[in-house]
């Protein structure tokens, strides 16, 4: 009798929790960015951000070590000159290398800022998405630093993405490799425009809607087209062409684009504050 009652109360609990989950999904799905749970989401981001910042600061060298291990396979084919370079680097202080790398990234970022006339807030990446199906990062700057939703985010290498959620001292940035991301791009050689979409299956970007008669060259650079009122300013590097398919019989070409930014080692970014997108209808 006791066992039966316990089983019944367990089932009741599970049914209640499932109903609560389904209600949450429905309410949030219908409410969107202005829904009742959006504020709770910003609160969760604000709560976790300081912890992420602290842990990220401590464990960044560990992550760098493992990221380096992933690329060990490609290092095997390097020539003797590069081996000597590796030996030299090994002998250097690890911290010194890290500072030098950060310095290089900052210089590249300043170069891009000056070249394109961008103004912005520098930020440090303190965390990545907790999901395997969302390609976002958390940065340590928020609304109190002037960061707003839809602001573009860049590094010295090129385009990173745009801000999708902001709390007081942190913000979430959707990367251009996210399947939800769409960037208006332009091929530098031909000037032809297309839509650059995130494509996780290929681990690259896909440039769609390119005219079938357009001549696309290997390694040709793709930059943001920056149409009026768009999310991104013009001339920011997205990546370079790695593969082209289609384009026969009037079918538009599909261009595979290798991103310029190495998303596995993002640390310093610039949130562009002097470019405003015009919200859609």
């Amino acid at each position: 009798m006791v066992l039966y009652r316990r089983t019944r109360s367990t089932r009741l609990l599970v049914v209640s929790l499932v109903m609560l989950s389904l209600m949450t999904i429905t309410v949030d799905f219908r409410g969107g960015e202005e829904g009742p749970f959006a504020a709770a989401g910003r609160g969760a981001l604000a709560t976790l951000a300081p912890l992420q910042a602290a842990v990220s600061r401590v464990f960044r060298p560990v992550g760098d070590f493992f990221t380096g291990l992933v690329h060990v396979g490609s290092l095997k084919g390097e020539n003797d000159a590069l081996r000597e370079e590796v030996e030299r680097l090994r002998s250097e202080n690890v911290e010194g290398v890290s500072i030098q790398r950060e310095n290089e990234k900052l210089l590249a970022l300043i170069g891009l800022r000056d070249q394109l006339g961008l103004e912005g807030v520098p930020a440090i990446v303190i965390g990545e998405s907790v999901s395997n199906f969302e390609w976002t990062v958390t940065i340590d700057r928020g609304s109190s630093d002037g960061v707003e939703v839809d602001m573009p985010v860049v590094t010295g290498e090129g385009l990173v993405g745009h801000v999708v959620r902001v709390s007081g001292r942190a913000a979430t940035v959707e990367l251009i490799i996210d399947p939800e991301s769409a960037v208006a791009g332009r091929l530098v050689g031909s000037g032809e425009t297309g839509l650059v979409l995130g494509d996780t299956d290929l681990r690259d970007l896909t440039m769609d809607l390119v005219d079938d008669e357009t001549e696309v060259n290997p390694d040709e650079r793709v930059v943001t087209s920056g149409y009026q009122g768009g999310l991104y300013p013009p001339r920011i590097v997205i990546g370079s062409v790695s593969h082209v398919t289609g384009g026969s019989g009037g079918v538009s070409k599909v261009v595979t684009v290798r991103p310029a930014v190495d998303f596995s080692s993002l640390d310093i970014v610039l949130v562009v504050t002097n470019h405003r997108a015009i919200p859609g209808p």
Binding site: S9, T10, L13, V14, L17, V18, L20, S21, L22, M23, T24, I25, D28, F29, F37, A40, G41, G43, A44, L45, L48, S129, V130, S131, F133, E134, T136, V164, R165, T172, E174
Partner: peptide
């Protein structure tokens, strides 16, 4: 056991959902 498992799953899933930029409640479910 199942009661605590379901409750821990709901709370943990909901906490994870609120950090994501997608409809809340999917991980909790």
């Amino acid at each position: 056991g199942p009661s605590s498992g379901a409750l821990a799953g709901f709370v943990g899933g909901m906490a994870q959902d609120f950090l994501l930029n997608e409809p809340k409640g999917i991980t909790a479910l």
